[in-house]
Amino acid sequence: MTPPLDLTADPIELTAALVDVPSVSETEQELADAVEAALRAQAGHLEIIRSGNAVLARTNLGRSSRVVLAGHLDTVPINKNLPLTRSGDGDELVLHGCGTVDMKGGDAVMLNLAATVAEPRFDLTFVLYDCEEIAAERNGLTRIQRDLPEWLLGDLAVVCEPTDAAIEAGCQGTLRIDVRVPGRRAHTARGWMGVNAIHGAGEVLRRLSAYEPRQPEIDGCRYHEGLQAVKITGGVAGNVVPDECVVSINHRFAPDRSSEQALAHLRELFDGFEVTVTDRAEGALPGLNAPVTQELIAASGGGSPVAKLGWTDVSRFAALGMPAVNFGPGDPKLAHTQEENVPAWQITHCSDVLRKFVS
C-alpha cells in the first residue's frame, strides 16, 4: 500500500515519493488514488474531482484571471531504474529513476503549490492526468476535454514538462506521411521486364537529402524544422522485382504553419508521388506577448524563453485559444532513458518561480 503523500513537504522529497510509486501508462490508479487522497486531506481550499486516473483541482476565488497547471502522472515502462536512488548532496543532489524527469519533478512542484498556496492572485487549476506517454486517443486530456472542458480553460496554461528549468514557448507540430513509389513486378531473372520500386525510392531519398529545413523566428524564439525518413518498406520475395516501396517520413514544423499548410508543403516537395498522412498534431504559437505570460517570464528572472522543438500538450491548450508554455525541472534529452535523473536544484527553482508568479 502506498504511504500517504505529504504535499507540504519539500518538493524534492515529494518528487522522490512520487517516483517510488510506479505508474507506467494505464497503471496509474495507485498513484492517482494517493494524489487524490492527499489533496482531499491537505488542500481543503480546492474543488477536487476525479476523471478516470486523472485528478483535477481548482480554486474558485473569483479572480480576474485563471492559470492552468498541467502534468501527467504516467511514465514510460520501467527500465531497471526503480526504486529511486540519489547521488551527491546539498546543492549537488541528484535524483535518479524512472519519472524523475518525465515528469514527476514537475508533478511535485504542482502538488506542493496546490496544497500550500490558498490565496493565489490568480484562480488556479491543477490537472494531473493519465496516459500521456501512449496513443493520443488514450491521453487523459482527450477524455477531460470531452467530458469536463471547462476544467481546461484559463488565461495561461503552464505544462510542467521537463525544460531544464527554462521557459520553453509553444511547440512544433508533427506530421507523419507515407510516400509510395510504384513499380511493376517481374522475375529477377528477367528484371528488365519490370520496374523496381525500391530503386525508384532513390528519388525520394535524394529530395530528402537535399532538403534545407526552415528556421523561422517567432516572438523572439527560433524554431528549427526537421524532415527525416524514419522507415522504408518494400519487397515481395527474393526472386521478384518489387512493385511498391513506401518511405515513411516525419516532419516537425514550426507553429507559424498549420498541419494543412505543412502537408501542402510536403505534397509539393514530393510531387509525382502518392502521399498519405498517417499521423498529425498541430503546433502551438508561443503566445509570449500575453500579459499573464509576461508576468511568468518576469517571475523567472526575465531570461529569454526558448522555442520548444518537440511536441507537447501545450498544443491542446493553444487550440483552446490560450497561451501555453512548458516549464519544469529535468533535461528533456534524458526523458525515456534508463539514465533519467533530475538535479534537485531545478525542482527547487521551478517551485520558487511558480510560487512567486502565483502568490
Rank of each mutant, 00 (worst) to 15 (best):
L95C: 12
G330V: 08
G140V: 08
D178M: 02
G202V: 07
D74W: 03
W151A: 13
F327V: 04
N326C: 12
L95W: 04
G105K: 11
G170D: 02
E203R: 15
V204W: 07
H45K: 09
E133K: 09
M110G: 03
I249A: 10
V314Q: 09
S209T: 10
H45R: 13
P286M: 04
A41Y: 02
V68G: 02
L69W: 02
N139K: 08
T312P: 06
G183Q: 08
A298T: 13
V179F: 03
D33Q: 11
D155C: 03
A43P: 09
L39G: 00
T312K: 07
G328V: 03
E132T: 05
T59A: 01
V24A: 10
A307V: 07
E36T: 07
R66V: 06
W192F: 09
A335Q: 14
A307C: 03
A118C: 01
R40I: 01
V159D: 03
V24H: 09
G90V: 10
A262L: 00
L153N: 07
W345M: 03
Q42V: 01
M110C: 11
G310T: 10
V67H: 00
H224G: 05
R206N: 04
A41V: 00
A38D: 06
L39V: 08
V181I: 12
N250D: 15
V127I: 13
L309N: 14
L175K: 13
T188P: 00
S65E: 09
E28Q: 07
D33E: 12
L93V: 03
F327N: 10
A201W: 02
A157Q: 06
E260R: 14
E260D: 13
A186L: 09
G194L: 03
D219W: 08
A254V: 02
F273A: 07
A115Q: 11
A16S: 14
T278P: 03
F273R: 10
H251S: 10
T163K: 04
F317V: 09
T8W: 01
A254Q: 08
Q346V: 04
R206H: 13
A17R: 14
D256M: 00
R146P: 00
L334P: 05
P255F: 00
P255S: 03
D147F: 01
G97C: 08
E137K: 15
K308R: 10
R138Q: 07
A186C: 10
